[in-house]
Every structure is written in structure tokens, then in C-alpha cells.
Nucleic acid binder design. Structure first.
Lengths: 120, 120
DNA sequence: TCAATATTTCAAGAATTGTTGTATCATCCG
DNA sequence: CGGATGATACAACAATTCTTGAAATATTGA
């Protein structure tokens, strides 16, 4: 993860429409949704949805797979994981002695990933 | 964490300047930095920096403490942790059986929080 | 008190991003 | 083949955000 990548992820999710799309795809899981289903669920016009899906795909937050004349989109969860690693890595790595006040970050282990880990 | 809060976090970090500021503060740790130090480190003019710091503070990503005529800023790490929990919670919580393809998310445990947890 | 310093507020213009309609491309099905 | 459908590309306009300079506020130290 480098800075431009992190920036493009944040830019992608800084729009209400795109955040809705991403969350819908996260919620849907590995089966994903085709563009039309997303548009119907969120009531976004096709042209506009295509614009936002393109941005999400370009940032790598979603993947696209063609199915006949449909385009199926899926959330790319590992990228979000990488993003967090990128943001938190410098803190404790460089100056561990300064991190006393931010150790609550350990909570992410269970809050964010607990259920996923339990399945492995 | 609700949607408007998540959105405001992403909006805050979708600017290169603000991402730089936030990362600098994360790196600096609990002691934080006063506005002038941030501006000097990143070469951002005071007026512009103030604009971006206000946005970060409004989103809750940084806290401010007045010290005489200085304003000391610190990164709010726990909020980032909450954000991840918000984004990943729906996936595995609602339909655990669909999460087979995204279990790599468990990696965040060690990648992002390993060093912080080791200190507790 | 007075000048200097640290930071913020405000207003204006510049730059970027979001939205919409029309046109286009590719695929499916009769 | 040819019409219908799903989705995207392009262009124009609207809306938002960013940047900058001048002015204001508050604090410090001589």
C-alpha cells in the first residue's frame, strides 16, 4: 500500500453513493451484484451509477466480471485490510514507546475481524 | 458509528494534504504537534492548513488542545478502529455462510494491530 | 502597554467532482 | 437478421471543494 493508493481509496468512499454501493457489496458477499441490481437497490440512475462504479473499480475496492451483457461487481475486502495496516503501521512500528495512548487500536482485532476469523 | 460519521471520515482523508496531516500525527503519537509544526513539516501555508485541520477535527479524526497561543493536534486512533468495524461488521454478521471468500480479512489482526497489541 | 507571534475567519476566485441526457457498444432472444 | 436490453462513453452544466490573501483574535514577552 502506497500513499496514492490509500488516497484513491478514501476518495472513492468519500461519496455517499459510492459508500452505499461498497457497503451493499460488502453486505452481499462473494456472490456480488450486477450493475442493474445495484442501481435498483440504491435508486441511482444507470449513467450515474456507472460513473461511481468505475471510480470504485479503479481504486480496486470492487472487482468486475462480465457475465454476458451483465457486469457483476464484488467488494474487494482484503484491500480495506491493507489500508488499515498502512494507516496504523507507522505509529507503533517507529516509536513503540509513544503508543501508550493508542493501544485501544487492539480492539480492532475483535471488533472488525472477530467473526471472520472465527470461520477460518 | 453511523453512515454520516463514516462518510465524514472518508471525506476528511480524501485530500492529500489531510491524509499527510493525519499520517504525520499518527506517526508522532500521543504527544501530537502544534499547528505551526505541522505546517513546517508539510510545507502547507497557515491559512490552508487551518482549513484542513478544521475538517479533520470536525470529523473527529484529530483532537485539539489549546496551549497558550498554540493549538496542539493529536490523531484519534480509536475512531479509525471504529470505522473498520463499521465497514466489516455487516459482511460476516448478517450472512456468515457467504464470507468464505473474504476471510483474508482476518489478516488485519496481525498486520494492523499486532504491534499495538503486543504492548498491552 | 505595545509589538510580535500563532492561529483562525472570511471572502473571492480557481479547480475539481458530481449529475444528467444523448449516443454508442455489445449481448441476448425472437 | 433485427429489435430489445444492460451497461458504458462522452459532453455540458451544476455543485462542491480547495487555495489564497487580507483582516481579526488571542496570547506572549519586552
Amino acid at each position: 500500500m502506497d500513499k496514492p493508493t490509500a488516497l484513491s481509496i478514501f476518495e472513492s468512499l468519500s461519496s455517499a453513493t459510492r459508500l452505499d454501493v461498497y457497503r451493499l457489496l460488502v453486505k452481499t458477499g462473494p456472490e456480488g451484484l450486477v450493475a442493474g441490481e445495484i442501481g435498483a437497490a440504491l435508486e441511482v440512475p444507470p449513467t450515474n451509477l456507472s460513473f461511481h462504479l468505475k471510480a470504485l473499480a479503479h481504486a480496486g475496492l470492487v472487482s468486475v466480471a462480465q457475465e454476458g451483457r451483465f457486469q457483476r461487481y464484488r467488494a474487494n475486502m482484503p484491500l480495506m485490510v491493507d489500508l488499515i495496516a498502512y494507516l496504523t503501521a507507522e505509529c507503533c512500528a517507529g516509536h513503540p514507546e509513544q503508543c501508550a495512548g493508542v493501544t485501544e487500536a487492539g480492539a480492532c482485532v475483535d471488533a472488525a475481524c472477530g467473526s471472520a476469523r472465527a470461520m477460518q
